[in-house]
Design a binder for these strands. Structure first.
Lengths: 155, 155
DNA sequence: TCTTGAGCTAAAGTTAGGTTTAGAAATTAC
DNA sequence: GTAATTTCTAAACCTAACTTTAGCTCAAGA
């Protein structure tokens, strides 16, 4: 088989629009696993462009890097992912994504019947009910989109 | 007219589920304007429960505190907001919110035709096109949902 | 070969959105 | 009237997701 030369970090940066520092950071977060050349520089698969694209897209949907890492777990690290690989992971991703959109829509629908009618101050209002909210998460910024507190609360 | 005694911060905290510290923080961010009693303690309008509820809901939709502050600008600070006041601001809010949901749906639809077909690595892909992305925002965490970089880029 | 651009690491800095802590003063409860 | 709560402020701390800086090495072109 042909030797894989690999591409440098600057090339990935150019192709994805991400800062070089961001790509290094993603590696540190386990989203990518480049190898090193003789001189110690990172070398990436061309397919990592697509991998990074996926990361960026998932971020737009409000997923955290640990969550995205878990989506990517299903991608083969060693070989170039096939279209089938991508289809598989994007299917898993889509279900999370659909759930997220649905949550937003439900909230919006509630909003119509709730802010409109002025019931917002009542504890029975679904919209600000603690169960439905992002509260009780301890420190740090609250996650934004209203579901999957996973990482923290499974201890 | 009856004298407005106002409620204490702990009461608001109880009613909204927010931490006392969060309420003080929101005040510092200009989302609330309590007055002080003789002893220097904060006193709030009862209507601030609703105001805080609105803040929490808007946060679930991914709006930042500055954005939320601007939504609340339309609320009368001095008097207790009427249902009409709320209707007015929630209408403005809804249009932002609809836009946000629509963006998500568009992204999802693109995703079907894009990750599925493997085109993700191409610069023409709408999904990771820099224009459509959260990139180029300078420092700090990138905002999550893909639009309204407003605050930063109007200089 | 030499120079310049790209890459490397480790550590510190940044932003948003809060929480925690410490010590003091005001309120409430008994 | 005193004890127990709340509340106050200011400053430090926290997480996520990065960027910046400093000082150095590697690689590519003239």
């Amino acid at each position: 088989m042909a030797k894989q030369a690999g591409v440098a970090i600057g090339y990935l940066s150019e192709r994805t629009g991400l800062a070089v520092s961001a790509i290094r950071y993603y590696e540190a977060q386990g989203l990518l696993e480049p190898w090193r050349n003789a001189g110690g520089q990172r070398r990436f698969h061309r397919a990592d462009i697509r991998r990074l694209s996926f990361v960026m897209i998932a971020q737009q949907f409000g997923f955290s890097l640990p969550e995205i890492r878990s989506f990517l777990k299903d991608l083969p690290g060693g070989r170039t992912p096939t279209p089938e690989d991508w289809a598989r992971i994007s299917t898993g991703f889509r279900s999370h994504l659909d759930a997220r959109i649905e949550t937003l829509q439900k909230l919006r629908d509630n909003l119509d019947g709730c802010i409109g009618c002025g019931c917002l101050s009542l504890p029975k209002c679904k919209l600000y009910n603690p169960e439905d909210r992002a509260a009780q998460k301890g420190q740090g910024p609250r996650y934004l989109m209203g579901d999957s507190p996973k990482a923290q609360n499974e201890a």
